[in-house]
């Protein structure tokens, strides 16, 4: 049997959340396992209260910050914790989806949940993923049954007959909505710096500070370098603002065949 264990927990209300997650944490502590809890900040206090003094023995992480980008959770939270305890079984509570996640964010969250199964296959790790069964849309809960091999709720534990993470990854790999308007530039090796400058310019107009503009410049540099190396040697950068965000898109003639690309530490 695969030593990796990945149950979804469907909870109803704060009390059920606190009792179930605290029991999971205590089971790990009793077995001598390192334990991390990465949940939205409004849930950290619930677990701390329920655990009492035991809360001081675990790592507490605000998922709204650490997991702001769902694509960062595997390398920056889950693998970061598991890899820091080599040779030991670790236990993590990871809640990446909450009701305020937007329609833009949700597909990346679902893909993240599916990819956990590939990233941790064969690993001595248990990751419990709580789902707010009252606050989340029914289709989100249906999809959780496709990304988790085991389902838990107040009535007990069952094997998920719908488990099919590969299909979740594929079904969310769809063309992205076109922006209403954007600034764009075709680039190749000759004018690569102009791609970074295009993004940095709009970022400055939108009020980003110097450090964040450096991040944006670096992200576009990484994407455009990928186009040169793996995407046919040229690409198209487009930048625009929508829904309170700056969007930087790089497209090219490449193909990302590895679903875990960008998630390996």
């Amino acid at each position: 049997a695969d030593p990796f264990v990945h149950p979804a927990l469907f909870y109803r209300g704060d009390r059920e959340f606190a009792v179930a997650t605290a029991a999971f944490v205590r089971e790990g502590l009793a077995a001598g396992e390192p334990v991390a809890v990465a949940v939205p900040h409004w849930h950290l206090g619930l677990i701390e209260s329920e655990l009492g003094a035991d809360a001081g023995r675990i790592s507490l992480i605000d998922m709204t910050r650490a997991g702001r980008n769902p694509g960062r959770i595997i390398p920056g939270v889950l693998r970061a914790f598991a890899d820091s305890h080599p040779g030991r079984r670790v236990r993590i509570v990871g809640e990446p989806i909450w009701p305020a996640r937007t329609a833009d964010e949700y597909p990346a969250c679902a893909q993240h949940e599916a990819l956990i199964n590939y990233s941790f296959a064969g690993a001595e790790v248990t990751i419990l993923c709580p789902y707010d069964a009252e606050g989340l849309a029914p289709e989100v809960l249906v999809e959780a049954a496709r990304t988790h091999p085991v389902l838990l709720d107040a009535s007990g534990e069952q094997v998920s007959a719908a488990f099919a993470p590969d299909k979740v990854i594929i079904e969310h790999n769809v063309p992205l909505d076109e922006p209403a308007e954007c600034r764009s530039l075709r680039f190749d090796r000759a004018n690569l710096p102009a791609a970074r400058t295009l993004a940095a310019g709009l970022a400055a107009e939108l009020g980003f500070g110097p450090d964040r503009i450096d991040d944006i410049r670096l992200a576009v540099a990484e994407l455009s370098a990928n186009s040169l190396d793996h995407g046919g040697g040229s690409g198209l950068v487009r930048v625009w603002a929508e829904h309170g965000r700056l969007v930087c898109e790089v497209s090219d003639a490449g193909h990302i065949a590895d679903p875990l690309a960008g998630r390996r530490p």
Partner: peptide, 30 residues
């Protein structure tokens, strides 16, 4: 590569198929 983009940005979305890939990095406006 993409790992750096994931670590720096607030959301990443990808559409990829044989011969065409688009990657979007989103940054929350302050």
């Amino acid at each position: 590569g993409l790992l750096i983009v994931n670590l720096l940005s607030d959301l990443v979305r990808v559409h990829t198929r044989e011969g065409a890939t688009a990657v979007r990095a989103y940054f929350d406006v302050p």
